[in-house]
Design a binder for these strands. Structure first.
Ligand SMILES: [Mn+2]
Ligand SMILES: [Mn+2]
Ligand SMILES: [Mn+2]
Ligand SMILES: [Mn+2]
Lengths: 220, 220
DNA sequence: AAATATTTTTAGGTTAACCTAAAAATATTT
DNA sequence: AAATATTTTTAGGTTAACCTAAAAATATTT
């Protein structure tokens, strides 16, 4: 049975919402993620259910089946590998690759993903720090926390971003924050939870709580 | 105005038929190339005509407009660059890349093609010997002839194939014929026009006229 | 528990891209 | 030139993936 591009995108959205929320995924969450009307989601859920890619109970939400989960995992693997290709090989910036990868992830073909993986040297993380599942669908989890939980005096290394949108990534570039950058949280302002951060031992910047919430770091 | 994947495929088919036949492209030729019913072609022709990508006269056939021709050329450029990527970088064989490139050619994005072109070192020919138009849509033409027109005693170098299907390409691999291979036509059998060919100064093979018709060589 | 608000589904549409069968136009043969 | 054959278009359908508006189900508030 063949799976369409639209179906794949829904499965990926459901996978990500389930991962984040940890419970049955509701129609409106999917509609929000996919930018479609709730009625369109109900429509698609019927089709995915017929294909046994989700378990769907009317009004109760959905969960991926084993097969649906496998398809979503492969899709995420493809998306992230293509992002690595675009950044490492073609020289795109990390804020430019999402829409391209969103298309490339749907290219179907025997051995393409695995050859791409080999060509790229089996990267374990994408340009945004997100883990790339291996050919068997296994995930690597990092012990990382949001920068917002660090206490003054704690050091860390940037490992990822929660917000993947271009404006945030461009802002990070501007202040010199990227994956692998070492930082020291020097102070937190009680009033608005903004933090003072020393970047790479050189520049000192003030980051709003919103920014700190969207940055993942590994405490060192 | 956005152009769909189906529309792009039709434009490419029309471009190629026009190139080969040199006159107005008829509904049935397109239907043959696209593997669709003639009625579906008529349907699509109306849409392409509305979008000013073709000039369409009922019952008389079609021709691409300037814009339609530009779109088709970019598509062929993308297709062939992706084929080079798949063979040179990912290690696919020349008989495995067509279907993948058929999908990859539709990926849309600012600067993707040109970055890919740069990454690949601005190749001028694809893995089948077909020319790759440059960023301005300019074509390189080769002075090549079909192997079937060579006279006994003439030498040549393989520059391309007319039939791109896997069985033919695999047959060529098997007998040691590929792009760049030097050969000498030693004899032609009058009865069936089959030819004797000395490959790379070593192996002597007999090729049917059908094979000789589908091989392009540069006489040397 | 009833009333009200929210969420989800159903009903009924649209568009692109396909289809078959019949009709119309064009080309070829006699 | 008429008859016949071939090609193309038209008419009328289907399916996936969307939509809005109304109805139904579920959740929350009073
Ligand atoms: Mn996608
Ligand atoms: Mn990413
Ligand atoms: Mn294509
Ligand atoms: Mn090719």
């Amino acid at each position: 049975m063949t799976i369409t591009t639209a179906e794949e995108n829904y499965l990926k959205a459901i996978f990500k919402i389930a991962e984040k929320e940890g419970k049955a995924v509701l129609t409106n969450s999917i509609a929000g993620a996919m930018n479609t009307a709730a009625a369109s989601v109900t429509d698609m859920l019927k089709r995915l259910s017929d294909k046994q890619l989700i378990k769907y109970e009317k009004y109760r939400g959905v969960a991926l089946t084993e097969e649906g989960s496998r398809v979503a995992t492969v899709l995420i693997r493809k998306h992230r590998l293509w992002e690595v290709f675009l950044v490492d090989k073609l020289g795109f910036a990390w804020d430019e690759v999402h829409d391209l990868a969103e298309q490339l992830e749907h290219v179907q073909g025997e051995s393409l993903v695995d050859r791409l993986d080999t060509f790229l040297g089996h990267p374990r993380f994408d340009p945004h720090g997100d883990p790339i599942p291996d050919a068997e669908g296994r995930w690597v989890y990092r012990q990382q926390v949001r920068l917002s939980v660090l206490q003054p005096g704690q050091r860390g290394v940037v490992t990822g971003v929660d917000d993947h949108a271009a404006p945030f990534l461009q802002y990070l570039d501007q202040i010199g924050l990227g994956l692998g950058v070492e930082l020291l949280l020097t102070a937190r302002t009680a009033y608005d939870q903004s933090v003072q951060v020393l970047i790479g031992g050189r520049a000192e910047v003030t980051l709003s709580d919103k920014v700190a919430q969207n940055l993942f770091v590994k405490v060192s």
